[in-house]
């Protein structure tokens, strides 16, 4: 019964979203449906937080591998939640000087702002920077001219890598910018690869993806594919 209800809700919400794209009086309905999703997702945060606590507490109690990280996770979670929720260190807004903590939780000088600036920003930026290291290691290991296609890809990669830096200017800058051969300058070749070859390939893949999305959505809306909710076999 609950599964049938889920299918009906999926059908109604899906049809609503499609119709709201084409029929003027229903345009707001699609936006309302999207709002419902936001409310559901926000409520599910509580579920996520409870699960986070359960998983990590159980890891700590059973002294699983890496249980120390679980302790750090729970501590960081509790501290961030507390300083944000209780607006620790938040000053009143200039418009309401008599109302304590009336400023935003992330206003400059607050504890939450401190955590954001000195902890979150540094940690996430470090994680993002890891990409430079991993991409170098992947390039060394996997970028091999095994066949004609791979060789073409390799040549394109060299041109883009050099054309996106000053090295391209140094290597091909002697070709006059206003001559008929200017297209051979690395920066121009790099732009051509981006705008012609990469763009054409991307368009083809995007068209395929768009049709895949349309067909998958249709199957889900009509209840033909239910495997994502655990049935259909």
């Amino acid at each position: 019964m609950s599964r049938q209800l889920a299918i009906i809700v999926t059908l109604v919400a899906g049809v609503l979203m499609v119709v709201s794209g084409f029929i003027k009086p229903t345009q707001g309905w699609g936006e309302d449906a999207a709002e419902w999703f936001n409310i559901l997702a926000a409520m599910a945060f509580v579920l996520g937080a409870a699960n986070l606590a359960k998983v990590h507490l159980s890891k700590i109690s059973s002294r699983d591998a890496g249980w120390g990280f679980s302790a750090v996770t729970l501590l960081a979670f509790a501290v961030t939640l507390a300083v944000g929720l209780f607006k620790v260190g938040v000053n009143p807004m200039p418009a309401f000087p008599d109302v304590p903590m009336s400023g935003g939780k992330d206003a400059e000088g607050s504890a939450f702002w401190w955590v954001y600036t000195y902890v979150l920003s540094s940690i996430t930026a470090t994680m993002f920077s890891l990409l430079a290291f991993y991409v170098a290691s992947a390039a060394f290991r996997a970028f091999r001219a095994k066949n004609t296609e791979a060789t073409l890809l390799l040549v394109a990669a060299f041109i883009v890598l050099l054309g996106r830096t000053f090295a391209g200017v140094v290597l091909t800058g002697w070709i006059p910018a206003d001559s008929d051969w200017a297209f051979l300058r690395f920066e121009n070749l790099s732009t051509t690869i981006f705008e012609v070859f990469a763009s054409a390939g991307n368009r083809a893949i995007i068209i395929g993806i768009a049709l895949g999305v349309a067909a998958t959505s249709l199957k889900i809306i009509l209840g033909i594919d239910r495997s994502y909710m655990g049935s259909g076999d």
């Binding site: 170098a136 390039a139 060394f140 095994k146 390799l154 990669a157 060299f158 890598l161 830096t165």
Partner: peptide
């Protein structure tokens, strides 16, 4: 620039090995 040059160098070395 130097990151990209290193990548080019690594790809050349990788292909030489190959």
């Amino acid at each position: 620039l130097f990151g990209h040059l290193l990548m080019v160098g690594l790809i050349i070395v990788g292909n030489t090995i190959f």
